[in-house]
Design a protein around this nucleic acid. Structure first.
Lengths: 204, 204
DNA sequence: TCCGCCGTTGGACGTTTGCGCAATATCGTC
DNA sequence: GACGATATTGCGCAAACGTCCAACGGCGGA
């Protein structure tokens, strides 16, 4: 198998195991067994298990980020872009992806590579949101004095709320997560209540 | 040593180690070394290491909750109570306690005991905050139509922001976490900007 | 004074971990 | 068809883990 393909296969297998067992308790042998190969092979492509886990997390998270980013770039207006953002970020059927975020945040303290990856992707999400806010401010549809801070606040509120849903199940109703986050965004950006509530979100 | 005291001593030692190394990588031998006793002793009081870790997490979280609760109960007004809340919740010198929360949230999906404990304590924090808001509304100093929702939003924003600080180090400035959270609370409760900013917080 | 309970010891046992290494299989190239 | 590079194997290693257990020791009751 070609080196690039093999690397991808290892990362894929790691994702599959991590979703099932958690990032923290995913071992070299688990990944090897998932691929049906030997454990030594993993170390032939990655210097340490830390790197493998970081790559697996990155694969999932970066893919989501790119999907949201592409969708938002296609939006006609900043308001539309924000609607897309909330529609894709909401943890509807991909709780497992958010669970990987929880794993990564917890594991960040112990695994340097995971921390670096998690940090970089979190910053990228915030940057994406901040850029959208800035363009909305420039265009005149948003009113916001601190786009960077607003982006962090919206993102963190969303993370904190989604966390409750994914970790605890039903402490918060699922629809409230995105409804509250959009409400906060409307307040942050000086928008009318309901502006950011798209039809797609109303159904969820 | 009396059985009850010994149990408490084990939990204390476990907390001390977990603060240093994280809950997930706290071992029986670590705890024994911390106490200056043998490792076999731990298993004489706890059936498994899982129980020890669960007890340690519960102790830390419940202790923090109780401390905040007591401090807030002593406050003269709901505004004062909220100031106390932010002053104690802010992850200033106790990042380690928040790291325990990160561990718990990540582990909640896969360990029922952890999930139950984490869920119960999160609900208790929300209840404490919601009760304060309700009393402020009744007293006329707050304006809020949805105390329960507001409590979740304030708490989740705080969690989401603190998460960035603890997991990633410096993605967000430490002082912004509590400043932004108090700002959100002021907005939620119809308070003047700066009302909730106590002197203690200004220094941090 | 002796006995027996029980807190406590300290190490053995089996498993699992990440990692490294020599041997082997495989495949493109001359 | 032989060769060399390299993908892959399979196991070994040392360390660390949770758990268990036989033995020790001090203290209170008979």
């Amino acid at each position: 198998m070609a080196p690039a393909d093999r690397r991808a296969a290892i990362v894929d297998a790691t994702v599959a195991v991590a979703v099932r067992k958690g990032l923290a308790s995913t071992t070299v042998r688990d990944v090897a067994a998932e691929m049906g190969t030997s454990s030594g092979l993993i170390h032939h492509y990655f210097a340490s298990m830390d790197e493998v886990l970081a790559a697996a997390f990155e694969r999932v998270a970066a893919q989501d980020l790119e999907a949201s980013s592409a969708l938002m770039a296609r939006a006609a207006t900043p308001v539309e872009a924000l609607r897309s953002f909330f529609a894709t970020y909401t943890p509807a059927d991909k709780d497992w992806a958010f669970q990987l975020w929880l794993d990564a945040w917890a594991e960040a303290a112990r695994r340097p590579t995971v921390r670096a990856t998690s940090r970089r992707l979190n910053l990228a999400w915030q940057g994406l949101l901040a850029a959208t806010i800035r363009s909305g401010v420039a265009e005149g549809s948003f009113r916001c004095m601190d786009p960077d801070g607003a982006a962090w606040r919206i993102l963190s509120l969303l993370d904190g709320l989604a966390l409750q849903v994914v970790a605890h199940g039903t402490t918060i109703a699922r629809r409230d997560v995105v409804a509250w986050a959009t409400g906060a965004a409307e307040s942050e950006l000086g928008l009318e209540v309901g502006t950011l509530t798209s039809d797609a979100l109303r159904d969820s």
